[in-house]
Structures are given as C-alpha cells and as structure tokens.
Amino acid sequence: MIQIQNVSKWYGQFQVLTDCTTSIAKGEVVVVCGPSGSGKSTLIKCVNGLEPVQQGKIIVDGIQVNDPATNLPKLRSHVGMVFQHFELFPHMSIIQNLAIGQVKVLGRSQDEANERGMKLLDRVGIKSHANKFPGELSGGQQQRVAIARALSMDPICMLFDEPTSALDPEMISEVLDVMVDLAHEGMTMMVVTHEMGFARKVAHRVVFMDQGKIVEDASKDEFFGQPRSDRAQQFLSKILNH
C-alpha cells in the first residue's frame, strides 16, 4: 500500500531525513515513534506529498507521490490524514467540515455528503454536536471529528500525525478507542505516536526513528521484547517508566 524507498530530505543545509526505507502492507497498522526532532512527523507528511522530498521514492497504492506528474489532490483524496492540532476548519460547522471535501473533491451531492457525515459522526460519538462549530468542542471531540472527516472521503489508508499529543490526558483514550476500532476493522494505518499502549494493542509493526534515520523496523513483539538498538532501548525505558 505504502512504500517509502531511500527517502532523504533537507531543509536548506539541514538534513531532516536520511535514506529512510520502509513499507506498509494493506491492512497493516504501523506505529512510528522516536524522540522529538527525529523526523517522524516530517516523514508522514511526505507520504501524501505535503512535504516534498529531494531523494528517493514514495509510492502509495501504486502511484509515485513525488513524481511531478502525479495528480496530488486526487491521490490525497484517497489518503486520510489526522493532524496533531486537529485542523478542523474553524469557520464551518462540524457537519460542514465533514461534507466539504465530499462535495468539492469527490463531487457528491450535499445530501449524500451530509448523510454519510452524520453516519460517521454517530460512529465517533459526536452526532449530537453536528451543528456546532469546532471552537465549541473539546480537544478530544475535535480530534474524533477530524478522524470522521478523514473517513468521510472513504480513504484507502489513514495517516495519523501525533493525534493525541495535543490533548489533555483524560481525552486521549476517547480518541485512541476510535483508532483501535478502526484498526480492528482492517484499515491500513500509519501512526506517529508516543502511545505505546496503543502500539502494543493494535500495531503489527513498529518503526523507530532517531535523527532522521529509521533505526529500527521490527514486528511489535520483537520491538517490545528486545529492541536491537541502544537508542530504542533508552527511548522505551524513558517513556515506559513514566
């Protein structure tokens, strides 16, 4: 589904990604973790072309993302993305947030889009807030709406960029629950997160990054059993001992 091949990226002189290679199969859930500044957020933004890469190839569903000829809007419409800061559109009501992409990008009718939107809101437990605006919802609620917005486009895979790190602790689980359900349904997911509990529960593989490099790319059991690299061991002991 997603192939990342020898990807390198620079901001000016500064190299943020160095020769990253990994892949995510259909139906697989891969958690990407690592210390802050390790490039994991940058990497996931490269997958749907929000960030350009200077070297290497990224292929999603058989289409090369970093090929100038690729129709990026079309590709992105099939790839759901959930952001750290939710990024709901503040001037639109919740249901409008869910409908806008369906209507303007997928060409669905307004009624069809609303119907689908309501179904998804019901699913994430926000149906009663459909006519409110994002600013009137809590962070956890906003993030669940953001997941519903991504799902409303019927994505073939989902990218999560630290979906819980801007949330208050008591709101994290409500978002993770939605993600766990999604994983159980067989959605292909790439998740940048520090939530190791989530990784333990549903991830198939864990990718550990440090200083722009993929240091470890292992099955969940291997990773939590005994990671091969010292950096990953240090990282794990730091966040698990909290």
């Binding site: 809007p73 419409s77 759901g80 952001f83 990024e87 559109f89 303007k104 990008v105 486009m153």
Partner: peptide, 22 residues
Amino acid sequence: PRGQRNAGLAIGFTQAQTYRYV
C-alpha cells in the same frame, strides 16, 4: 496556523480550492 493549509490539501483540495474554502 500552517496546518490549515495542510488539512485542506490532505483532503484532496487543490491549492485554489484550499484558498477558496479554507
């Protein structure tokens, strides 16, 4: 926030649509 542009692009809007709707 810069994320708003990304969110627009991520649901498949073109640059022009991102400006117009987001």
